[in-house]
Nucleic acid binder design. Sequence first.
DNA 1: CGTGGTAATGAGAATCATTCTAATCATGGT
DNA 2: ACCATGATTAGAATGATTCTCATTACCACG
Lengths: 140, 140
Amino acid sequence: MPTGQGDRAPRATRQRQAVAQLLSRLHDFRSAQEIHAALRRSGESIGLATVYRNLALMVETGDVDTLNREGGEAVYLWCSRQHHHHLVCRSCGHAIEITGPAVERWAEESAQRYGYTDITHTLEVFGLCPDCSAAESDRR
Amino acid sequence: MPTGQGDRAPRATRQRQAVAQLLSRLHDFRSAQEIHAALRRSGESIGLATVYRNLALMVETGDVDTLNREGGEAVYLWCSRQHHHHLVCRSCGHAIEITGPAVERWAEESAQRYGYTDITHTLEVFGLCPDCSAAESDRR
DNA sequence: CGTGGTAATGAGAATCATTCTAATCATGGT
DNA sequence: ACCATGATTAGAATGATTCTCATTACCACG
């Protein structure tokens, strides 16, 4: 083995860039199928499997966050690298990054109290964003 | 219509009781399929669809909590009626109820800061329980 | 600038959890 | 006990996601 550099950089394919670009412009959680449809609509030639593969990669690298919509469908959102949580609109999917140092500490302490190790946690806050709140009360 | 009793009490069928009884004895998150298999193994005659239907009912009434395993499979756990979260073993599924008043407050405040209304949140802490931690370090 | 090695792609098949369907059964008010 | 009606069942249907593998297209090197 010539250089000790084991892992080569992932290739910059047209499709991968298209997915990344679309996601990085969005501020809303979107499903793989929605992303696929949007790219097709905008003229991109890309397969559904490729969308799934690239989303999985981006989740691994930490560029994208994922969570499950009620119904079990996974949705994806471009996000910052640092640890954070999301405030998500239940109606339109709009998401805002939020952090809570106190929560992190509490989770860690609670787990240790019971002897649990290798601790992680998931935390999402759902609600209606200002726009959807307004629309909601109009309807009534 | 004889009595004015609008909402009928759900019938106490053998299958429904079997699901409830199994769950109430367990302290671990289990999937519908696992529950179905366990009941069959113990001699119960019950269909998979019935397990799903009854689990859904119990989730509605608040007797059972549900969350998604990585992979998207839903798992279920008998739980107390009051608001709480779970400390879940990533390996064996064992769960402990935990509460964090500070977290509730933080979630509420964060959401209000951005004008979000009708707020809910999900929070789960994952780790390896003491037993699984031990087994893990043995393996290495 | 060509070329080779190889990761990436894509169409469709396969998988897996979950839900629906149509037929059958059993609960419980009378 | 009777029997309308809600509950159950096996299997088919659904829908999201993953796999297969032949083909394509990055890109480091010459």
